[in-house]
Design a protein around this nucleic acid. Structure first.
Length: 442
DNA sequence: GTTGAGCGTT
């Protein structure tokens, strides 16, 4: 009666792989991740009502649906937001291109220790290692502990390849039942030069879909995100896995669907542009920046539509419009001046989120300093002072924004409101479709 | 035995 394998595919319309079940009928998450690095769960289409159903996940085991696994069914991987679902394809070529290009002279693609925030107290280095090894070779895992040997809830990870580092920074992480954040540590600030992954694509037409852009730009390297503002605004953002690919495209014209588009840096430009406002706090949201005070909330009220389960971080302090940024308008006169105050029409933030904008809300990289978390303008000034290519500077912001985006997407609910018993995050429970066992967390 | 923003030799 029981089956030994189930069919799993990365995406719809992709070929499936048979994955072995355990004796108890569950599928180990590690088994899944062995074939699909970065996957955090499974889903399938319920034949009865066509709805997508999630597979129960508990203690790193995927449990069969109530009526058991169906050997005829294809189960599909679930990836965290911003996860790269095409890892199997382009990554090798990308890194080839990169390593053969101008990168080596620039230390931007060096791995650094990454801080992992939000670990469960219980989580061991071994468990963390097993998790991150699904992304690639791990050189070091460290959990910081107090004198009694109890975890402080954070640690460090170091990858062997920069590609892995990029992937990991670009998403959030479910480690041992907790959503964790991985960032470049503050101590590395300024040391690590991050390069922009995101480009601005100007002169887009309304006919260009996300898929069109993705397909077109994928030939240069792995595309991890395509953002098209709605309503239509004649530009979009394309994010590549590899920043060098992104850099290489900047300044170029490309023809997509017979239309010439212009690629430029998706980054804040100069001081002069910075007084602009991303618009409208009409829904109470705030793209951060502006307040001179602490680096706390500011984004709490934002509505990140792309997140299915991380919502509800009730309104952070509204950071009254300081420190906002224009995308780089200098390259193409065609970039619509769209960020500025138009926008009562954008009710629910179909505007790009922080990540798409490449913005570091609240200057969080300066935590722990006495700089009172300067708004971006200040950060930019500081960065401009560095002997770096301004494009790379912009990129750094981009990267930070990325990390922050992950934070916003993933961390919003964890540990604040609405937690279950024992401080278990309900969002986790929702994902698991059942309340987590206590043993999951403590 | 509690905690949940943070930033690494212990």
């Amino acid at each position: 009666m029981s089956i030994e394998f189930i069919q799993v595919a990365e995406e719809f319309n992709e070929e499936s792989i048979e994955l072995p079940l355990e004796e108890d009928g569950t599928l180990l998450l590690s088994t899944l991740q062995g074939q699909f690095p970065g996957a955090t769960g499974l889903k399938y289409r319920n034949p009865e009502n066509k709805a997508i159903r999630g597979i129960r996940l508990n203690e790193s085991r995927l449990h069969p649906p109530n009526n058991g696994w169906d050997s005829e069914m294809i189960y599909y991987c679930v990836f965290p937001k911003e996860s790269v679902s095409e890892n199997k394809r382009k990554s090798d070529d990308v890194m080839e291109n990169v390593s053969k290009s101008k990168v080596s002279k620039c230390q931007s693609n060096k791995c650094t220790d990454l801080i992992v925030l939000g670990l469960a107290w219980k989580t061991s280095e071994q468990v963390i290692r097993e998790y991150f090894e699904t992304f690639g070779e791990v050189l070091m895992i460290q959990v910081k502990k107090d004198s009694k040997g109890h975890s402080k809830g954070f640690g460090f990870v170091r990858f062997a390849s920069y590609e892995c580092q990029l992937r990991v920074l670009g998403q959030r992480h479910l480690v041992d039942g907790r959503w964790c954040e991985v960032k470049v540590p503050n101590s590395k600030e300024g040391t690590v030069q991050q390069v922009p992954c995101k480009v601005f694509v100007g002169r887009c037409t309304e006919e260009m879909t996300q898929d069109d852009l993705r397909e077109y730009f994928s030939k240069f390297g792995e595309v991890t995100d395509v953002f098209i503002p709605k309503p239509f605004r004649a530009f979009s953002f394309v994010t590549f896995l590899d920043p060098e690919i992104a850099q290489g495209l900047c300044g170029e014209d490309h023809i997509i669907k017979g239309v010439s588009v212009h690629v430029s840096n998706a980054a804040p430009k100069s001081e002069s542009n910075r007084s602009q406002n991303y618009g409208n706090n009409s829904n109470g949201s705030n793209y951060g920046g502006g307040r001179g005070g602490n680096g706390g909330g500011g984004y709490g009220g934002s509505n990140f539509n792309r997140n299915d389960y991380g919502r509800g971080g009730g309104g952070g302090p509204s950071g009254n419009n300081g420190g906002n940024f224009m995308p780089n308008n200098n390259m193409s006169g065609n970039n619509p001046n769209a960020w500025g105050g138009n926008s009562n029409s954008n009710r629910n933030l179909d505007m790009p989120n922080l990540q798409n904008l490449g913005i570091n809300p609240g200057g969080n990289q300066n935590q722990g300093s006495n700089m009172s978390n300067p708004p971006m303008g200040v950060a930019m000034n500081a960065l401009n002072a560095l002997p770096m290519n301004p494009a790379l500077v912009a990129a750094a912001l981009n990267q930070w924004g990325s990390a922050m985006g992950g934070l916003l997407n993933g961390m919003q609910n964890q540990g604040n409101n609405d937690q279950g018993p024992n401080n278990q995050p309900w969002n986790q429970q929702q994902r698991n479709q059942n309340p987590p066992e206590k043993s999951n967390f403590m």
